[in-house]
Computed example of a mutant assay.
Amino acid sequence: MTTDTHFEPQPLGVPCPRCQKELQLKKGRYGLFVGCSGYPNCDYMTAADFDPGTDVHCPVCEDGKLVQKTSRFGNSFYACDQYPLCKFSVNLPPVAQSCPDCGFALLLKKRTAAGERLVCASESCSYKSSIQ
Rank of each mutant, 00 (worst) to 15 (best):
F7P: 11
P84S: 03
Y30F: 15
A113C: 04
V90S: 07
C36R: 02
S71I: 00
K27E: 14
N91V: 08
V95K: 12
E116G: 05
D101W: 07
F77N: 08
L118F: 05
P84Q: 01
R29N: 09
C36I: 03
K21I: 04
L66R: 07
S129F: 07
M45R: 15
S37F: 05
A48M: 10
G28A: 15
V60I: 14
E8P: 01
L106W: 00
C80Q: 08
G74M: 08
V95G: 06
K69N: 13
D101L: 09
Q97T: 01
P84V: 03
S37T: 06
F73I: 12
L85N: 14
P11G: 03
T112M: 04
L12E: 00
C86Q: 06
L32S: 07
V67E: 07
P52G: 03
A113L: 12
L85E: 15
F50P: 02
G38P: 05
Q24C: 14
C36T: 05
C42T: 08
Q132F: 02
L23D: 10
H6N: 14
P11C: 02
E22C: 08
S130N: 13
V34Q: 05
S126T: 15
T70K: 14
L66M: 07
Q10N: 04
N75F: 04
D43A: 07
P93F: 06
T54A: 10
L23E: 11
G38Y: 02
Y83E: 02
D55N: 15
T70G: 09
K65W: 08
Y127T: 00
K69E: 10
F33K: 08
K69S: 11
A47Q: 08
V14P: 01
R18S: 10
Q20R: 15
L12S: 00
Y30M: 10
P94F: 03
A121L: 02
E62T: 15
L108R: 00
Q97R: 12
C42K: 08
Y44I: 00
R18K: 12
N75Q: 13
E116F: 05
P84C: 03
V14W: 01
P15L: 04
D81F: 13
E123P: 09
C80F: 09
P15Y: 02
L118Y: 03
L25F: 03
Q24A: 13
D81K: 12
A121K: 02
A48G: 10
C16Y: 11
C42M: 11
D43C: 05
C80I: 08
V14T: 12
R72A: 07
P100T: 09
T2I: 14
V90E: 12
C36M: 02
Q68G: 08
S124A: 13
C120G: 04
F7S: 12
V34R: 05
L108D: 00
V119S: 00
A113Q: 14
T5D: 13
P11E: 02
Q10G: 01
A96T: 07
A47F: 05
A96L: 04
G53Y: 03
C102Y: 00
K26I: 03
P59Q: 12
Q82H: 13
G53M: 06
G64N: 09
G35T: 05
V67S: 03
H57N: 13
H6F: 15
P94Q: 08
G115N: 13
T46V: 14
L66G: 06
P11W: 04
D43M: 06
N41Y: 07
C99F: 09
T112Q: 07
A114Y: 04
C42A: 13
L66C: 08
R29Q: 10
V34C: 06
